[in-house]
Each structure stands twice: as C-alpha cells, then as structure tokens.
C-alpha cells in the first residue's frame, strides 16, 4: 500500500511501486483532469504538484509518492488562477490547461515563498515545460501575470 495525501485527503492505493503516478490518478483514482500528451516528460499535460514542486506525473513512479502531498487540478486552491485563464483567453482546446494551471500554481507559490520576480520572462521560463499548440502562449502568460496580481485577494 502506498500512502500519500491527495488534494488534502489521506489516500492509500494498492499500486505497483513502478506504476506511473499519472496512470494511478487517471485509472485507479478516476481523476482524469490530469492529461497524457506524450508519456515521456516532454509536454507537461500531466503536470501535478508534489510537495510544492511541479512534476510530470507520467515520469513519477508510485514508489516516490509514498508519504508525499500531491495536488491535482481537482483539488482546491487554484480558483483564482482558473478564473484568470478564463478571463484572459488562456484556454482554447483545454487539453494543456490543467497542466498549465498546476505549473502556474507551483510557480506562484514558489515566488511568494522566495520573493522571486514575477514578470513576463520568469513566467515564460516557468511554463517552458508545458506545451500548448493552440494559444501561442501570450494569453496564458497574461493569465498568469493577472493571477499573480490578484493572488491573495481571492
């Protein structure tokens, strides 16, 4: 049994230690908000936050998840980011969006903790692991910057 906290709740799953976190989330736990675009760590559609860091869940074996805190798109605490993605036009087909939002969340929380700058360049760097084929990224970057400005107000 692998035990961890998922979106704030304790869970234990009977998974093979080498099973991918992505598959366990999608198939065993029926949390299909996390997407698969490549299965090899290139697209970021499968991004989730593990212990405050954004990771590609397609590359993470369950053995590494034991005892961690996992956040997915189904969890709470990213409504502000989601609102700005909608307001700024940061989602089109939407398949990259959950991953983008989780990467954004990790980035904004990290910046808040470290006081790192949040600007166009740092946002682009933070999202470099998340591919989007629809938007051209501009409206996603705008959404993240807008979310950063209002973070805490929500």
């Amino acid at each position: 049994m692998i035990q961890f906290r998922l979106n704030g709740e304790a869970v234990s799953v009977d998974a093979h230690p080498m099973a991918r976190l992505l598959s366990v989330l999608r198939r065993d736990l029926r949390l299909t908000g996390t997407k698969e675009g490549c299965g090899e760590g290139e697209c970021g559609a499968c991004s989730v936050v593990v212990d405050g860091k954004v990771v590609n869940s397609c590359l993470i074996p369950m053995s590494q998840i034991d005892g961690t805190e996992v956040l997915t798109i189904e969890g709470s605490g990213h409504a502000n980011i989601q609102d700005h993605f909608l307001a700024e036009g940061g989602t089109q087909c939407g398949i990259c969006t959950p991953g983008m939002i989780m990467a954004t969340r990790a980035f904004l929380e990290d910046a808040e903790a470290t006081g790192a700058a949040i600007d166009e360049d740092s946002v682009r760097a933070a999202l470099a692991g998340n591919l989007c084929r629809c938007t051209g990224y501009g409206k996603i970057v705008a959404a993240v910057l807008a979310a950063a400005r209002t973070e805490g107000d929500a």
Binding site: R26, L31, T32, I73, Q82, L86, G94, I101
Partner: peptide
C-alpha cells in the same frame, strides 16, 4: 462572451475521449 465549455476545461472536468470511464 464566456466560453460555455470553459469552466469545465480549467477545472479538469471536460471529458475528452480517454476520460470516459472504462
């Protein structure tokens, strides 16, 4: 005008083919 399907997309509730339960 808000995208009608937008909220489901940003919340991970939108159902793409492989999200249909088995």
């Amino acid at each position: 005008v808000a995208r009608p399907e937008g909220p489901a997309k940003v919340e991970g509730r939108a159902v793409y083919v492989d999200d249909i339960p088995r």
